[in-house]
């Protein structure tokens, strides 16, 4: 049994909030730079240049890459031999979010009740925390600030076996086409297939966290579908910010899970070009 103090969790989370919002992962930036070389649309190329320049400014001056610094999502892998002391784990994460968003001059975008009152909580809490218990005595925290624009373009469809892989592909491409410029393309396309209604949505979200960007699914059959989908999506012509071009998606990541004999749920979750996430191990 190893003890982890909540004070350390607060500090680590606060640091992650700032780091993720200022510094785009290198693999994402590299993919954007490569896409720029292949972009035929002058407007599209100019937008990709702006994106690269914006990331330079954000990194150098420690500014939010995007003003929408997102819903604070956490994916936690808690080693079963870790004992958290000196307070409550969830409170510690929320405390870290509060501190990180305050000290980091990040926007607070959360309202207390989704429909009736919609009053801003003013500290970007509560966070959303998913926890997995894993072997070992380490605590891994992955932080992913998720902006509203791209999140609004997500969808789950309860397809069935009869739709087959063609049904899945059609749904994914259509979802990206209908989203147009709204999710701030070039996007990362997260696809979850299998499990249940909520599980496939979760898989689609987790697909957005795959490192490095564009790494293939370990199953070659799905890796092939990822490649095919990326090509199809980049034929849509949507381009950077939806103003026309070749670079609509940077990558397609598929995650799967076994499913019930009667079902084949599929979820699509998009990330914008500000495909942020950072992790830390305590």
């Amino acid at each position: 049994m190893r003890e982890v103090n909540t004070k350390e969790i607060v500090d680590v989370v606060a640091r992650l909030c700032m780091d993720a919002n200022y510094n785009l992962p290198e693999d994402v930036l590299d993919t954007i730079k490569k896409a720029k070389e292949k972009e035929d649309s002058p407007t599209g190329k100019a937008i990709l240049d702006e994106i690269i320049e914006n990331n330079r400014i954000a990194r150098e001056e420690k500014l939010a890459i995007c003003q929408d610094t997102g819903f604070a999502l956490f994916f936690v892998e808690l080693g079963q031999d870790v004992h958290i002391i000196d307070g409550n784990f969830q409170d510690a994460i929320n405390e870290g979010v509060k501190k990180g968003y305050q000290d980091g001059y990040l926007r607070k975008s959360i309202v207390n009740d989704p429909v009736l009152l919609r009053v801003n909580t003013k500290d970007n809490t509560p966070a959303i925390i998913y926890t997995d218990i894993v072997p070992g005595d380490k605590l891994k925290i992955i932080f992913c600030p998720k902006g509203g624009g791209a999140e609004n373009m997500a969808e789950v469809q309860m397809l069935t076996a009869a739709h087959g892989i063609e049904g899945v592909k059609k749904f994914v491409v259509e979802r990206v086409r209908k989203s147009g410029g709204n999710p701030c393309p070039p996007v990362v396309v997260g696809v979850g297939i299998g499990g249940t209604f909520e599980r496939c949505a979760m898989l689609a979200k987790q697909a957005l966290l795959r490192e490095p960007l564009g790494a293939p699914n370990p199953d070659p059959k799905f890796a092939e579908v990822e490649q095919e989908l990326l090509e199809e999506i980049n034929k849509l012509g949507i381009g950077p910010m939806g103003l026309g071009g070749r670079t609509t998606a940077l990558a397609v990541h598929i995650e799967t899970y076994p499913c019930h004999i009667a079902t084949m749920p599929v979820a699509v979750n998009l990330n914008c070009h500000v495909a942020r996430h950072k992790s830390a191990v305590i």
Binding site: E50, I51, E53, N54, I57, C66, G147, G181, C272, H273
Partner: peptide
């Protein structure tokens, strides 16, 4: 149309 997600640049 302004470019989404280039918020530090636009702020200049």
């Amino acid at each position: 149309a302004a470019t989404g997600g280039v918020a530090a640049l636009i702020a200049k």
